[in-house]
Write a protein that binds this DNA or RNA. Sequence first.
DNA 1: ACATTAAGTGATT
DNA 2: AATCACTTAATGT
Length: 210
Amino acid sequence: MNLLLDKLNLIFEPELIKLFEEQGKVKSFPCGEIITHDGQPVLFIPILLEGILKISRTNENGKDLLLYYVYANQSCAMTFTCCMEQHPSEVKVTAESDVTVLLIPIGKMDEWMQKFPTWKSFILKTFRERFNELLHTIDQLAFQKLDERLVNFLREKSKATNSTIINLSHEEIATEIASSREVISRLLKKLENESKVILYRNQIKLLSSF
DNA sequence: ACATTAAGTGATT
DNA sequence: AATCACTTAATGT
């Protein structure tokens, strides 16, 4: 536990780290585990120590539209807004890889905001980053063509899994970027013809020219 | 060998 | 760009 918390030394003052150790809980989730369902109340502020979280929004048909990924030493801005007033979560959080998180009881949020400048700026920073990313997502939905969105999605997925092999079916990709399977298949076929990817069943290999 | 699921295709809106 | 109807290919039992 201490090893992991040591990394936070660069971000927070030692005094606050001590409080993390006393009041926080370190928890691990295996890859693929659903950490928070849509509509569930948020009881903790999670700070991601290791791994990657996927934040998605579930629509009426139970399909998950990808919102963004959360990487190590970041937190999820959505949960801040929820936990402050104890609203249920509006998003679904899934472990994209094996993850370790530091869970902070929600009651501490206000108190620490006033006591610790680093905590305050951490909170503000995650808001700022997420707000920017949200703007970016809106840009994509509003102005970008689907083929560009697909390329972006594959890039981000590749980054998140640290691999040029994407293990997803066309169907799964389609739901994550809110499109349909046939359209994704055709766009991927085009990318394959341009020698940017190689398609397999349930798997896509990104080539260097990608 | 057969059933199931993923992927490819053409036509229609 | 989405949906439908259908075919073909890959994979599991």
